[in-house]
Design a protein around this nucleic acid. Sequence first.
RNA 1: GCCGCUGUGGCGGAAUAGGCAGACGCAUUGGACUUAAAAUCCAACGGAAGAGAUUCCAUACCGGUUCAAGUCCGGUCAGCGGUACCA
Length: 805
Amino acid sequence: MNHVEIEKKWRERWEKEGVNTFSFGGDKCYVLEMLPYPSGANLHVGHWYNYGVADSYARYMRMNGKNVFQPMGFDAFGLPAENYAIKTGVHPKDSTAANIATMERQLRDMGMMFDWSHEFCTCRPDYYKWTQWLFLQLYKNGLCYQKKAPVNYCPSCQTVIANEQVVDGKCERCKTEVVHKEMTQWFFKITDYAEKLLLGLDKLDWPEKTKTMQRNWIGKSEGGEVVFDLEKPIGEVKSISVFTTRADTLFGVSYVVLAPEHKLVPALTTAKCKKAVEAYVAETAKRTDIERTSNTKEKTGVFIGSYCINPINGEKVPIYIADYCLATYGTGAVMGVAAHDARDYAFAVKNKLAIKRVVMPTDGVAGELPFTDYGVMINSGMFDGLSSADGKAAVLEELKKTGHGGAKTNYRMRDWSVSRQRYWGAPIPIVYCEHCGAVPVPENDLPVTLPYEVNFTPDGRSPLALSPEFYETTCPVCGKKAKRETDTLDTFVCSSWYYLRYPDAHNADKPFDKDTVNSMLPVDCYVGGAEHACSHLLYSRFITKVLHDLGYLDFDEPFKRLVHQGVILGPDGNRMSKSRGNVISPDPIVKKYGSDALRLYMMFGFDYAEGGPWSDGGITSCAKFMDRIERLVESVKDEKIGKTDGALDYDLNYCIKEVRADIPAFGFNTAVARCMELVNAMYKYKGQPDFDPAYLKHVLTVLVKVMAPLAPHFCEELNEMLGGRGSLFDEQYPTYDESKLVKSATEYAVQVNSKIKCKIVLAQGLSVPQIQKLALENSDVITALENKPPKKVIVIPERLINIVV
RNA sequence: GCCGCUGUGGCGGAAUAGGCAGACGCAUUGGACUUAAAAUCCAACGGAAGAGAUUCCAUACCGGUUCAAGUCCGGUCAGCGGUACCA
C-alpha cells in the first residue's frame, strides 16, 4: 500500500464529503488541544503526540455518537518572534505568517479532524481587537490597575528583559549584570478570585497533581495580622503589619524583618545605618526570589536602626531588612521568632539576637531549638498552658481588642502582571492624557492596531515608544493631544480566552455570541502539557470566572476535563533542541511510512502522560503491524461473509471491550497492544484446521472499525478493500457481547505462605468456602502443603488462594 | 530552596481497588522458506545455580505495615516540570 497516496485520497474525500465539517446541535463534544505557538519553522513530533493522539480520541467520541467540535488556531504573539526579528531583521508578522503556513500544511498531513473554518490567529486585528476588549472589561470592573513592580533590566541594552533571557544573573545578549528596576505596570486582580479559583478545582475532572499544584500556587494560609507600633512614628505611618500563621509564638519575637524593597525602609533607616542598608538593598536587587528564599543559603540581613513595639507584651524589638523576606508575600514584613522557626533561628544566631522559647512540646521534654511543631504555650503571660491551636486564636482575639491585629487569610498568589515592554503583542488600549490621566480607549475605536513599520533594534525603549505614528493620538474624553500606552499585553492574555472564540471565530461584532458559547462550552476534553498548570490553565479559569460574573457566560470553568501529554525527547533522551541536533521532524517519517504509522507509534510507544525518548525502531514496528493487517485483508477480501460466530469470538470481544475502556482513558499504548493480540490470534487461526476465510473477513471488518480512530486513513482504505462504502467515521463504534467473554473455568494460583506452589483450575462463580474446600482437596495442593496443617486460607475469587501454614 | 511528578529486563512499556511482576512491541539468538539476501512465518528471550523437575534473587536504595507490596507508610538518592516577563 502506498500510504502517502491513500492518505491523500482519504483526506480529499473527507474534505469533499464534509466529514470534518462541524454543524451545531446534537450531543456536542468539544475536544481541544492547546493551540500551537508558531516559533520554529516546523512542527516536531511532540506536536503530533499532542494533536494526533487527541484527534484519535476525538474520532473515537465521534464514532460513539458525539457531535465532535475540534478546532485549531495559532497563538502567534510573543517574545521568540521578536527576538528572531532583532537577530535577522525579518519582521515578526512575516516570519509568523510563514511559520503558520508550514504548520497548517503539516497539520493537514496529519489527517486531523479539524474544521478549519473556525481557525484564527491571535496576532491578527480581528482577534486581538477582542483581547483588547477583554482588557477593557477588566479595567471597567475594577479588576485591572497599575502599580510599580520590579522588572529585569539590562543597563547596557537599556531594555527590560524576560526571566528566560537572564542567564546566571546576566543578560544573555551582552552578559551585563541584570538589575531589578521598578516600573509602572498593568495588573489583573486575579487575587480577588483566589477563593473562587480554589473552590472551583473540586468539581473538575483534572489530574489530581495539577489541582494540587494550583492549590499550592494559590497558597491559602489562615493566620493573623499583627501590628507592631513604631517606636518613633514617621508622619502618618505609625506601625508595621506582619502576617503570621504562628500568633502563638508572639511572646518569642526577638526582631522584625522587612523586605529590602519595603516602602518604609528608607524612612526607618537611621543615618548611622544608611550606608549598609543601601548596599544591602542594591545587592538584593540582583538576586532572584529562588536564590533569596533558598534554605541552604546563609540568612543575611542588616539592622536599619529603628525599633518597634511588640503589641502583646510591650517589648522593644529591633527592625532588620533581610532578603529572605519577600515584598510580594503577605505584608512584606515578618516577625522573627528564633526559637520556633528554622530560618529565624539561623538569622538570630548569626546576628546575636535573643532566642526565647515560648512553646513546649506536648510531651514536656524541651529538646533542641528551633522547635517548629505545635505544642503548649509557655513564657506567654496569661496564655501559658494553651495549646498552639487555641493560643493562636486567643492571641489574635486579644490583639483585636487594641486594634493591633486579628485573624487574617493570606494567599501566596500574586496579581497577574500583563504589561510587556515589547512590540510583538496586543497593544494595551489605554491613552494617557495630561488632563484626564489614564483613559481607556472606547470599545468602538478598537482595535488599537499594531503598526507594521517599526524599528526593532533595542535602544532602551519598546519599538512602539519610538513610533510617533502609533503613540500620538487625542484623548477620547477631552479631545486634547495625548499619548497611547506603548506596552503590549502578555501573550497569556491572548490565550486566556481563545477557547471561547472558536465556536464563533469570525464574529465581527462581538468576541463571541453568548448563546453559542453557552451551548458549546465548557470544553469537554482539553489536552496539553503539564507545564501550564499554574499559568495558562490558571489564567483561563480566572478569565472565565470574570466573564461569568460579568454576565457574559453561564458557566464558570472553561475545561471540564484535562489531560496532560508527556514530553517526547530526542533519541538521546534529552529534550529536543536545535542546538543539540536531536530534533525529529515528522515530515520524512510521514513520507516514508505514512502519517498513520507515525500516529500509531506515538500511541503505542509511550505512556501518554509520561512521554519519553523517540526511537526509530518503534516506528518500523508499527509499520510492520499495519502490513500484517493489510496482508490478512488481502487474503480474504474477495470472500463473502457467511457466519459471524467462530473461534475468534472471545479474542474479538475482549479486544473491543478493552479498547473501549482504554481510549477514553487515553491509554492508547494498551489499546494498540490489544489490537496486536487480536491480529496475532488471527494469524494463529489461519493455521487451524477449522479455518474459515469468510469468518476471518467478518473479524477483520470489525477490527478496521475498532482501529479506525487509531489509524484513520489506513482503516478507511482497508474497509473499502473489504467492500465497505462511505466513511468509517459516519459509523458507530463496535460494541462487545459480554456472553462471549464468559469462561467456564478459572486458573487459580495457589500460594503456600505467600509463595506460589502450583496452579489449579476451578469452575467459575464458586463461593469462597467451596473454593477453599476444593483447593484443600486438590492433590497438587496436598503435595505442596507437605502435611503441614493450614492455619488460615485466603481466597481472592477468580484470582488466587493463599494457604498459611 | 520550595511545589508537583517519575524511577520496573539490553530498550519502549504492561500490571482495575494490595493478589501469579515483565502483557504488547523493539533488539538479540535459533529455525523454516530462498541459489543468496531482504521480506515473511515459527520459536527462545530478567539474573544466578542445575542435566532436569526445580530452587534462589529481582520493580532506584534503606526500613516499616500486611497472609500478600511495583502498588500503602517513613526516610535516602537520582532525573524531569514549574517557580510568576519562554509559551
